[in-house]
Structures are given as structure tokens and as C-alpha cells.
């Protein structure tokens, strides 16, 4: 059983009532992602979403916590488990859902689907279905930010599976040697599909020490604690913006469901799953707010309701959206 994150120290502190709106917003984003993913699962079982679908349930605190430190001029690049990042980055919920439905109103007009959410206007440069394939792309975005002097940075999300790809090491080396404004954000959910990370990586399940060998400052945090994510990201982003070069954050987390809709996740034992379920940020975070009297149960219920409503209307929007015209098959191929 892997309960590695229990050893990570909580880093976040509550700084009084000013945080209330911020905390409610973090909670709203996590609720939105959770509800969105639950709806995806349901729509998949109804046949409205087809193909390969990877739910972010369990990892919400990361997407919600990271995006608070980013600006409009920054870039986000991520992996195929990408709905959460898209929503937290502020992409239109309706159009993300419509993309999953393969409708004309989807962000990529249905050409991309679940694993390939893009919105250039939001600096959201994609979910990527090839494990590790997004890493050099993010470094290139960061290089362009540096070259043009925009002050922007790039954040790249990747999983524990990606760190064994050669391109991960190539990207870390180049990012470090060129001082690129790039945040490597590792979502270590302990499994690459059905294989435990410790079975495929020398040096064990803690991956962040690799960054040190490239001279990149790294931190490990509890990915189930949205405040820890927010704080660590804030610190790293501040240093990156100050020109200190790339930083690396490893967040220990867990997906509550299988790798994809086709995966019953029999390779994990119940005790391990129960442990991580007990650390569900959708439970612990609102509990903390109630305990510290930062919000009332009614206020939290209002937040949940607004997230539920937003997702329900996204499903409705998607169901009512037309499929792409057949002629769209031939568009967007060449300039």
C-alpha cells in the first residue's frame, strides 16, 4: 500500500478572513471539476461520449491550486487527463464538454476530443495523449516567452509515467541550461496506467530529487491539499518570474477511478484506495473551512449548487449542439 503523501508536511496557512473569497473560489473550482468528471462518466455510460476517457477525480486540488498563480500571458500544457486543468484555467465549460461529445461547438470542433483540449486564447496549449510528448513543447513556449520578453511563463503538467521517457530528461537539461521560465509540475498519482511507479523507476516513488541533478530547485508537496498546492506554486512562480529559471514541484496524489473508463483498477488494493479516499480534497477542504469558520454550510452548498448547475447546462449545451459538418473533415489541414 502506498501512502507516501502522509509524510509530506502541510505547508499552507490560513491568513484570516481575506482568504474567504479565495477559498470559496478554490472550492468552487474543485467542485466544478468533480461534478464535470462525474457527468462525463455518466454521459460515457450513456454513449454520448465515446472513445478513451480519463477522469481527474481525486486530483482536483492540483489543477485548482496551481492556476491561481498564473496570469493571462502564461501558458499551460498538460497530459491527457486534462479536463480539470482546462476548467481551472477558465476555459468555457460548455465548450470543453461539447468537445468531449465531438460536437461542432467543441473547442476544437470535435476534432480533438477528451485528451486534446486546446484553447489558444487562454494560453491552454493542450492536453497531450503521448506520455511525455508535451514536455519539450512547454519548453518551447517558455523559450518564446523569454525571447519576446513577455514576462509570461509556461507550466507543464505531467505524470509519474512521463519521467522515464528520454524526452523528460532532455527537456529538464535544456530548461536548466537556458534558464527557461518553466514550471515542471509532476502529478505523481503513483501509477502509470496499471503499473505502480516504484516498479518502473529506480530510486523509488519520490521523483523530485531527479530535478536536483539538473540544478533545478524542487519541492514535494501533498497534492490532496489545495492550499499546499497553491502556496508551493505561488513560491515557484514568483522565483521563475524573477528570472531564476525553471522550478520543479512534485505533488503526490491519487486518481480515485481507473486509468480510463475501460480500467477497473484491479492492480490496486482496497486499503490503499480507502486511505486516499479518506484524504479526498472535496471533503477535507470544506471541512477545514467549516472548522475554522471561514464559511457556513449554506455558503458551501451555494458553491456546490452553482458548480452542479454549470455542469448540467454544459451537458445540455452539448446534447443540443450540432455535430460538425462533414466538410469540416477537410479544414484546418494546411495554412
Amino acid at each position: 500500500m502506498n501512502t507516501r503523501a502522509a509524510k509530506a508536511k502541510p505547508k499552507a496557512h490560513v491568513n484570516g478572513a481575506n482568504d474567504k473569497q479565495e477559498f470559496l473560489e478554490l472550492y468552487r473550482q474543485m467542485c466544478l471539476i468533480r461534478q464535470f468528471e462525474e457527468a462525463c462518466g455518466e454521459q460515457y455510460s450513456r454513449g454520448n461520449i465515446r472513445g478513451f476517457l480519463h477522469l481527474y477525480i481525486g486530483q482536483e486540488a492540483i489543477a485548482a491550486g496551481v492556476m491561481r498563480s498564473l496570469r493571462a500571458e502564461d501558458y499551460v500544457v498538460t497530459h491527457y487527463r486534462d479536463h480539470g486543468h482546462a476548467l481551472a484555467r477558465g476555459l468555457d465549460t460548455n465548450r470543453v464538454m461539447a468537445e468531449l461529445f465531438g460536437r461542432a461547438t467543441g473547442l476544437s470542433k470535435g476534432k480533438g476530443g477528451s485528451m486534446h483540449i486546446f484553447d489558444a486564447a487562454k494560453g491552454f496549449m493542450g492536453g497531450h495523449a503521448i506520455v511525455g510528448g508535451q514536455l519539450p513543447l512547454a519548453a518551447g513556449l517558455a523559450l518564446a516567452c523569454q525571447y519576446k520578453g513577455t514576462g509570461g511563463i509556461a507550466v507543464v503538467f505531467f505524470g509519474d509515467g512521463a519521467v522515464n521517457q528520454g524526452v523528460f530528461h532532455e527537456t529538464m537539461n535544456l530548461a536548466a541550461i537556458w534558464d527557461l521560465p518553466l514550471l515542471f509540475f509532476l502529478e505523481n498519482n503513483l501509477y502509470g496506467m496499471g503499473t505502480a511507479a516504484e516498479r518502473t523507476r529506480a530510486g523509488g516513488v519520490d521523483i523530485y530529487p531527479i530535478a536536483g541533478s539538473y540544478g533545478i530547485e524542487a519541492a514535494m508537496i501533498d497534492g490532496m491539499d489545495v492550499l499546499a498546492v497553491r502556496e508551493a506554486t505561488g513560491e515557484a512562480v514568483k522565483k521563475i518570474r524573477a528570472g531564476e529559471g525553471p522550478k520543479f514541484i512534485e505533488a503526490k496524489t491519487y486518481r480515485f477511478h481507473g486509468h480510463s473508463m475501460a480500467d477497473p483498477a484491479r492492480y490496486r488494493d482496497h486499503a490503499e484506495l480507502d486511505y486516499w479516499l479518506s484524504r479526498d480534497p472535496l471533503k477535507s477542504f470544506p471541512k477545514m473551512m467549516l472548522d475554522r469558520e471561514l464559511a457556513t454550510a449554506e455558503e458551501l452548498a451555494v458553491v456546490r449548487k452553482s458548480a452542479d448547475d454549470e455542469v448540467a447546462s454544459a451537458v445540455k449545451f452539448s446534447l443540443e449542439s450540432p455535430p460538425p459538418a462533414k466538410s469540416e473533415l477537410f479544414t484546418d489541414v494546411y495554412a
Binding site: R50, G102, G106, K109, K111, G113, S114, L329
Partner: peptide
């Protein structure tokens, strides 16, 4: 197939 990058996600496409 047509000369487009394989392959669009949307079921109809």
C-alpha cells in the same frame, strides 16, 4: 482516407 492528419475524434468525422 482523405489526406488529413489521422484521425478526427468526432464519431461522424
Amino acid at each position: 482516407p482523405p489526406e488529413i492528419p489521422p484521425m478526427p475524434f468526432s464519431p461522424l468525422q
